[in-house]
Computed example of a mutant assay.
Amino acid sequence: MFRFKAPSQNTLELMGEIAKGNDKRDFESMCIDKIRNLTGHDNVKITSSGNNSIFVALSAIEGDVIVPDQGGWHGFKQIAGFLNRDIVTLKTDSGLINPDYLDDVDIREGSALIYTSFAGYCAEQNTKLISKYCRDNGIITIEDASAGLGDKKKRLGNGKYSDIIIASTGSPKIINAGKGGIISTDNDEIFEKTKLPQKLSKTSQIVCGGICCELENVGEKLELTLNATQHLKNNIENTLHADKRGVNVIIPHSNAKEISWNLKKSLPIDRSGFITACPNYNRVKQKAVSVEIKNLSYDCLEKEHLDIIIKEINNQL
């Protein structure tokens, strides 16, 4: 049986000590310093959830909110709608953003493009290319780096490219404190405009302590997940965006629903799941099976476990 990712034992123990009042350090300040080092942004806030981080970020946007047509997060559209922002849906290449497609849409001043570090968690976005186009055209970039913070290649979750970086630190994210979120920016005006939503989304020292602990080896955890995913891509035919880094594997197939159901039975997990059937806006809008490597406990990312997954998938295809 496979195991769903949970906060590390060190994280749980530290959060317990803070809850008991045995550790009174200012973990919020410690978190902020660590996130500054990761993103390169001066302004950092720890929030109560990833969706609250999105809410804070979109509260600062006065123009349109541009979202990818697939491979994003449904909360982008839900929160933009709640804030009465006009939503512009951007055509993508199966989730990957091609800035040239922005030429085909009418965008108002003060608009923002919000997207995830990995399209559908499957394929790394070209943040450098996206950033250049958007900055040349007055578009604010908001990167949801829930799966990209700690990137050793410095391409994802990097404030050099993204005007605003947000992330969830809930389960089963790379930074896994069970709850919480992050927002960072170098734009002082964004934090000035959003003082009220920031207050409403404030979190506890317990959660900050958990995030702090999880940040200690975030780069290694992301690298392990990326390598495990690549091992599957190298051994399963017809995976989507096979040449791109990702934290899950998407396999287009006309019989995706039945295959997904069969894999859930042959690859049991202790709670929740790591097999997702598509079409699914958060992944791709075509029939496909998504294998959520990012959801697995790190001890399940060893080659012997990955080879079991590969064998079962290849047996079904």
Score class of each variant (00 low, 15 high):
Gly157Arg: 06
Ala277Leu: 00
His305Lys: 15
Glu192Thr: 14
Thr276Pro: 02
Lys265Asp: 10
Asn98Asp: 15
Pro68Asp: 03
Ser94Leu: 13
Thr92Asn: 01
Ser49Ile: 03
Ser29Lys: 15
Thr229Phe: 05
Asp69Lys: 09
Pro252Lys: 04
Asn282Cys: 11
Ala19Thr: 06
Leu58Glu: 15
Thr92Ala: 08
Glu62Arg: 14
Gly157Glu: 07
Glu302Cys: 02
Ile18Glu: 05
Asp100Gln: 09
Ser290Asn: 15
Asp103Pro: 06
Ala177Arg: 01
Ser49Cys: 11
Lys257Asp: 15
Ile190Arg: 00
Cys278Gln: 12
Asn51Thr: 14
Asp106Trp: 12
Gln230Thr: 09
Gly63Phe: 12
Ile107Tyr: 09
Asn22Ile: 00
Asn51Ser: 13
Asp26Gly: 10
Gly72Phe: 03
Ala123Met: 15
Asn158Asp: 13
Lys91His: 05
Glu17Ile: 04
Thr276Cys: 00
Gly50Lys: 04
Pro7Gly: 08
Asn234Arg: 09
Asp103Val: 03
Asn98Gly: 01
Arg36Trp: 04
Asp100Gly: 03
Ser162Tyr: 09
Ile32Phe: 10
Asn176Gly: 04
Leu156Asp: 03
Gly81His: 10
Ala242Pro: 06
Arg108Trp: 06
Gly150Tyr: 02
Glu304Gln: 12
Ile164Cys: 06
Thr116Ala: 13
Ser201Ala: 15
Thr225Ile: 11
Tyr298Ser: 08
Asp100Pro: 02
Asn238Gly: 11
Leu38His: 01
Gly180Val: 06
Gly21Tyr: 04
Glu302Asp: 14
Lys132His: 13
Pro197Glu: 08
Thr47Cys: 02
Gly71Ala: 00
Lys160Cys: 06
Gly181Tyr: 09
Lys294Asp: 12
Ala145Gly: 05
Ser266Ala: 03
Ser162Thr: 06
Ala123Gln: 07
Asp188Ser: 14
Ser117Cys: 11
Lys179Glu: 14
Ser162Ile: 01
Leu232Trp: 03
Ser272Phe: 14
Ser162Arg: 09
Thr92Met: 05
Cys278Tyr: 10
Lys311Ala: 14
Pro268Glu: 12
Ser48Thr: 04
Cys31His: 00
Leu96His: 04
Asp243Ile: 00
Asn248Lys: 03
Pro268Arg: 08
Thr92Val: 09
Lys265Ile: 05
Ile206Glu: 12
Ile313Glu: 11
Asn84Gln: 11
Val218Ile: 10
Asn248Ala: 01
His241Gly: 00
Asp26Ser: 05
Ile114Arg: 07
Lys287Ile: 00
Leu14Trp: 02
Gly209Ser: 11
Gly75His: 13
Asn255Thr: 06
Asn158Ile: 09
Pro7Lys: 08
Asn22Cys: 08
Ile190Met: 08
Ser272Asp: 14
Glu192Trp: 00
Gly50Asp: 04
Asp243Leu: 08
Ile142Gly: 01
Asp270His: 07
Cys122Glu: 09
Gly95Ser: 08
Phe27Val: 01
Pro172Leu: 01
Glu304Gly: 08
Ala57Ile: 03
Ser29Ala: 05
Val56Ser: 10
